[in-house]
């Protein structure tokens, strides 16, 4: 468990980082909190030729209200999500979900941008970004900044739309407004383990019925996914336990997850339904309470 040899750069600014990355070519990797990349390197499952360490780029850690939502610098540590009153106020699901990422030691190092760019299909943050309908900003030296919508970010297992010469610099989450409620549910073998299944929902009410709903899941596919059929099924209906059950069944019908050593495909499908049912009920209650 010792990494193979690699070059290491510690740029002091984003411009310098983009420049180093552009020069280093496709064998380079960006190092953020290192909570996934470094173990992969130690196991020699990843062998980047060049590490571009962003920990010296201070400008990437800011969290601020912006554009009717919450902008989070890529190098903001996951633990700051749990403690920030701004996050709690604007995107409470994010604050809540963050407490499920690893253990506090991991969250003190792990970053928001690192998790989004790593794109583990069981990870909390990409799923929350998808559920919230957020986006990320990526930048390269050659082409400048561009926005990538949550829907387009993750392309498969640990694969994203981010090009080798690009750095994810910021994530943006829209503010949860009006008669809307959220819920986050997760089952893991132990607290802090990768989710077997996680679900995040947003339910917006119009009077007594669901105006629109988002159901996002992690751990059930090669990327975080939305359960479109179930979303459609509940839209326009009045929230109830029976409706949540209905949606749960619809979710089960939509998924064909892959099993692993911790849980089978059947388990993930079944429990995705359970968590969606719970998450819809809780989100609807929150929406009712908030309206």
């Amino acid at each position: 468990m010792k990494p193979s040899p690699f070059e290491y750069s510690a740029p002091a600014s984003l411009e310098e980082a983009l420049e180093v990355l552009a020069e280093a070519g496709s064998g380079a990797k960006v190092l953020a909190g290192g909570q996934s990349l470094v173990p992969l390197m130690n196991l020699r499952l990843a062998a980047p030729e060049h590490l571009v360490d962003l920990n010296g780029v201070g400008s990437l850690s800011e969290i601020r209200a912006d554009d009717g939502g919450l902008a989070i610098g890529a190098m903001a540590r996951q633990s700051t999500l749990e403690r920030s009153t701004l996050v709690e106020e604007l995107v409470p699901a994010l604050a809540h979900a963050a407490s499920h990422i690893g253990h506090f030691q991991v969250r003190n190092r792990g970053t928001v941008g690192g998790s989004l760019a790593h794109a583990d299909p069981t990870a909390e943050l990409p799923m929350i970004l998808l559920a919230a309908g957020g986006r990320v900003t990526v930048q390269s030296k050659a082409r400048g900044a561009r926005a990538v919508e949550a829907n387009d970010l993750v392309r498969g297992y640990f694969t994203t739309a981010i090009e080798p010469d690009e750095i994810l610099t910021e994530a943006w989450f829209p503010r949860l407004e009006g008669a809307a409620g959220w819920s986050f549910q997760e089952v893991a073998r132990r607290h802090g383990d990768f989710a077997l299944v996680a679900a995040a929902t947003v339910v917006r009410l119009d009077g007594d019925t669901v105006a629109d709903a988002v159901i996002a899941l992690a751990g059930v596919a090669d990327r975080p996914v939305r359960a479109a059929a179930a979303e459609e099924l509940i839209t326009g209906e009045a929230p109830s336990a029976a409706l949540a059950e209905h949606a749960a069944d619809a979710v089960r019908g939509e998924l064909s997850p892959t099993g692993d050593v911790h849980a089978s495909s059947e388990y993930r499908r079944e429990v995705a339904g359970v968590l969606v049912g719970r998450a819809l009920s809780e989100a609807a209650q929150r929406a009712q309470a908030g309206s």
Partner: peptide, 12 residues
């Protein structure tokens, strides 16, 4: 494991 528990009671 959670998987084995659900199996043991026929939920999956």
């Amino acid at each position: 494991s959670p998987d084995r528990v659900l199996r043991s009671i026929g939920r999956i």
